[in-house]
């Protein structure tokens, strides 16, 4: 009887071992997923003395306007994009002016541009102004065969010693919420 009981106990432990191995595998899989999707590396913009971190596997372009544009090359019909730009700001000017200027630019450059909501948010110890907007992206490449994409975006502007630092997030409306984490991480690591 002791022999039988020992065998049964071993069988029970064997069942639990299977579940334990599965849980370990899935946990490792989750860590791998997070690392693959969200690993970042540092960027430095000398002109504006701005540093931050952006997804390591995204394409990066440094230019005058925007200072940085980084895009997910595997984004499908619309590549999720993060941008960083600065605008000079007079001593008595409000950061909202920078948002107004961007709104006018985008209204010219895009189709069906609409601003959605403007709100004050805090970014660490600083206060910031955030505006969400939407527009329709039509393919520039005539050989690309897909429907126009509804893009949703966010501009976040922070006043910094005579200039406005503007971080922008652009994603297709369908993936906006799923990819928002990239923008949150991007903004939280900005240092200027």
């Amino acid at each position: 009887m002791a022999l039988v009981e020992g065998t049964r106990r071993r069988d029970r432990w064997a069942d639990w071992a299977v579940i334990l191995v599965l849980l370990i595998a899935l946990a490792l899989g989750f860590v791998l997923r997070q690392r693959t999707l969200y690993t970042t590396s540092e960027f430095v913009i000398d002109d504006g003395a701005i540093t931050g971190r952006a997804p390591v596997r995204w394409l990066r372009e440094f230019d005058a306007n925007p200072l940085l544009r980084t895009r997910n090359p595997r984004g499908g019909a619309f590549n999720t994009t993060l941008e960083l730009r600065t605008r000079p700001l007079a001593a008595d000017a409000e950061p909202a002016l920078a948002l107004q200027a961007l709104t006018l630019e985008r209204a010219d450059d895009t189709s069906a541009y609409r601003t959605l909501e403007t709100s004050e948010v805090s970014l660490g110890a600083r206060s910031a102004l955030q505006r969400t907007f939407t527009y329709v992206q039509t393919a520039q490449n005539p050989y690309l065969d897909h429907l126009p994409v509804v893009v949703k975006g966010v501009d976040l502007v922070v006043e910094d010693e005579g200039r406005a630092v503007i971080a922008t997030y652009l994603s297709s409306a369908e993936t906006f919420d799923a990819n928002y984490r990239y923008f949150r991480d991007f903004v939280q690591t900005l240092d200027f």
Binding site: L28, L32, R33, T36, L37
Partner: peptide, 29 residues
């Protein structure tokens, strides 16, 4: 939940390890 199509194709190692840890273990279990 794991949305493997978003990240498996990104690199060879993520593809191999993800295929084993997520796809392989889930299906076989």
């Amino acid at each position: 939940v794991f949305q493997v199509r978003r990240w498996l194709p990104i690199g060879a190692w993520s593809n191999i390890l993800g295929s084993i840890l997520v796809v392989g273990f889930t299906q076989e279990f």
